Amino acid sequence: MTTEIKAMSLKHGAIVLVRHGEPNVSRKVTLSAAEYRAFWANYELLGLLPGQTPPRQLKDFVARCGTLVSSTRLRAIESAQALAGERAFDRHEMLIEAPLPPPRLPAWLKLSPRIWGFLARFWWWFFNHHEGQERRSEAEARADQAAAMLIGFAAGGETVVVLAHGFFNHLIGRSLKKLGWRLAESEGYKYWSMRRFERG
């Protein structure tokens, strides 16, 4: 086998991390910590807001990808289905979002879900507030495992598209960078956005 052919055979495909579409939940409320805890538990069960149309560019991209996978959360599964139609894809528990247990602040304090989400992530990340759920160190280890899995999928040279979640996609991206991958393109972390990683 020539050096050129060897190099071609070792070339990985890209890994594209996509955030799911908008979930079917209203954030136009104010909640106590306990109410936000129930809000997040319900959010984890919900699918997509009806009537959404995925970006055409992303849909065309998914049609050309070699491997499509999603997390096992309904909002991720429905997003993958909206992009892929009848195409089969695997679901992986490893790709679910990291938990968001809110800090135990006074019951009279009412905040929007967006602010509670920020506070919960801050407390979880910096103060290890987990309420018996997954810890930061455990989520980072899971992200390392997910990155290794995706690199395996990409090893044959085909592009891999992942339908998962904003923060856990961020953790996977950090893991990919540690393993020598670079961020080649990013649309941020909004719904339906994608971040493309390539072998460095």
Rank of each mutant, 00 (worst) to 15 (best):
T2M: 03
E4G: 03
I5M: 08
K6A: 13
K6D: 11
K6H: 09
A7W: 02
A7V: 04
A7G: 03
M8L: 12
M8S: 08
S9F: 11
S9E: 09
L10A: 07
A14G: 09
V16H: 01
V16E: 02
V18T: 11
V18I: 14
V18R: 02
E22P: 00
N24L: 00
S26G: 09
R27W: 12
K28Y: 09
K28N: 12
T30Y: 11
T30R: 13
L31M: 13
A33V: 10
Y36R: 08
R37C: 03
W40S: 10
A41Q: 13
A41H: 12
A41I: 02
N42W: 09
Y43F: 15
Y43R: 08
L46G: 07
L46Q: 14
G47A: 07
G47T: 04
G51Q: 13
T53E: 04
P55Y: 11
R56W: 03
R56F: 05
K59M: 15
D60A: 14
D60Q: 15
D60G: 15
F61T: 11
A63H: 15
A63F: 11
R64L: 07
T72D: 13
R73L: 15
R73T: 13
R73H: 14
R75T: 10
R75F: 06
A76G: 07
I77A: 01
A80G: 04
A82L: 14
A82I: 03
L83P: 00
L83W: 04
L83F: 03
G85E: 01
E86W: 02
A88T: 10
R91E: 06
M94L: 15
E97C: 06
E97S: 06
E97T: 07
P99D: 10
R104P: 01
P106T: 02
K110A: 07
L111A: 06
S112H: 08
P113E: 15
P113D: 15
I115Q: 09
W116D: 08
G117E: 11
F118L: 14
F122G: 07
F122S: 11
F122M: 10
F122V: 05
W124K: 06
F126S: 10
H129F: 11
H129M: 02
E131P: 01
Q133F: 05
E134W: 05
E134P: 14
E134A: 05
E134Y: 07
A139L: 08
A143F: 06
A143I: 10
A146T: 04
A148V: 15
M149H: 14
L150S: 07
L150I: 14
G152Y: 13
A155R: 05
G157L: 01
G157D: 00
E158A: 14
E158L: 10
E158Q: 08
T159F: 02
T159C: 07
T159S: 14
V160L: 12
V160P: 00
V162A: 09
A164V: 02
A164F: 01
H165L: 03
H165F: 04
G166W: 06
F167A: 13
F168G: 08
N169H: 02
N169R: 07
N169D: 07
H170W: 07
H170L: 10
L176K: 00
L179M: 12
G180F: 03
W181V: 06
W181S: 03
R182N: 00
L183T: 02
L183A: 02
L183M: 13
E185A: 10
S186R: 05
E187Y: 00
G188F: 06
Y189C: 09
Y189K: 02
K190D: 12
W192C: 09
M194Q: 12
R195T: 08
R195Y: 01
R196K: 14
G200H: 01
